[in-house]
Design a protein around this nucleic acid. Structure first.
Lengths: 217, 217
DNA sequence: AGGCAATACAAACTATCGTTTGGTTTAATA
DNA sequence: TATTAAACCAAACGATAGTTTGTATTGCCT
């Protein structure tokens, strides 16, 4: 006889059957998002293998089967995390660049973009951004398109700098961009020990990229 | 009745019972290494999940259970790949730096080190070097020690440059090193499309790091 | 020729995975 | 109060994972 348990009395509760989106005035986030958060958390901390349906369910105080009420498959969960991560990042950086005055110098545009990028990697919702690196190649490939679009953002930024004469020409941007972003993405992981702030990291990256580390003579 | 099959007549054969290491004159590599190669290959191409005992066995034309004659567990296989990858890399770069004339300028030392590092990432036995990034965090942590030792190599290289006055001081090396190495490590992945050579990548990294990309006035 | 290692296989074992199914509880509506 | 939709659970399913066990084959040495 199933369901004859002690009727758990969960914190969660049933929903109003009528309206599905009557303005989520309740402070608690919708289950769908809480599940995404839990899954992202596990993936980043323990890897994709450890992110089982049962582990995710446990983190949101549910049973594995119940997840299928909110998502149709595990793949759907992962894919949504992936998309949200990159799309949020793209929107932030693109928005930051767009909102700058058109005559802003290259160094300032670069600095602003790097600041937002790094801040997103160490910020409140950093989990979503870091999920990608923990996924098996099969799944990674699905978000390839979007990630190339994001890289294109940086490519254009640099290309503009070169065109205006503020950045030296002659560098292969298709190598420079992944080099720069790659470096930027790995710093937070190592900087946790040294306890560097988002601003310090961004500052170092910008200064190094612009002027190099060779002693001026 | 097990083993009553058509007695496969494998290419492989029994070994000399006496000496285990009578100079491996036979051209074929020992099974142990072939297994490591196969596992590394799968991990890099399809991810850690896809690297099942059965998949590895199939790649070396065996059955899963037979792997346990050469290794006592899957973990042992992965760990050996991991160690060999970093240790080889460390030995190469450390050796390259050591073999330089003591009065070699910083730029030359840096260039040599970067050259070997990048060449190892795109070279013949690149698989071992790229396995790390595909592993679940739990396993990654085991090689943390060795990887920090490798980072220390670069840290010292930069510190020497600063001490000799060839590199500008004032940069936080504990941020600069992971930033630089992180960038270096990601380039090969992206450069496959643009078809850049090992030398091009290394050249760009060194030039950018030393002089920056800002236009000189 | 006989025996002993070395090497591999077949088959099963247990654990756990993603997923499905049918039923139960809850809270709002009518 | 009866109904209904939302939300969850218990239990099981088949697939597949890493691993163990007993057995068969093969070549070298005596």
């Amino acid at each position: 006889m199933p369901g004859t348990g002690e009727s758990r009395m969960r914190a969660r509760n049933g929903r109003r059957p009528g309206g599905a989106d009557v303005a989520d005035t309740a402070k608690q986030k919708p289950m769908r998002i809480e599940i995404l958060d839990a899954a992202a958390e596990i993936i980043v901390r323990e890897g994709y293998d450890a992110c089982t349906m049962r582990a995710v369910a446990a983190l949101v105080d549910m049973k594995a089967g119940s997840l299928y009420y909110h998502f149709k498959s595990k793949d759907e969960i992962v894919e949504e995390i992936l998309n949200q991560g990159i799309e949020t990042l793209y929107a932030r950086v693109a928005g930051t660049i767009r909102d700058l005055p058109k005559e802003a110098p290259f160094a300032q545009r670069l600095s602003a973009a790097v600041g937002v990028h790094v801040a997103s990697l160490v910020g409140k919702d950093q989990r979503y951004m870091h999920v990608y690196e923990h996924l098996p190649p099969t799944i990674k490939r699905r978000s390839r398109k979007m990630r190339e679009k994001y890289a294109q953002l940086w490519h254009d930024l640099f290309a503009d700098g070169v065109a205006s004469g503020e950045a030296a020409h002659g560098h292969d941007l298709s190598l420079l961009v992944p080099y720069f972003l790659g470096g930027l993405n790995r710093v937070p992981e190592w900087s946790r020990a040294s306890g560097a702030s988002s601003e310090q990291i961004a500052g170092l990256a910008v200064a190094t990229l612009l002027d190099g580390i060779a002693a001026r003579r």
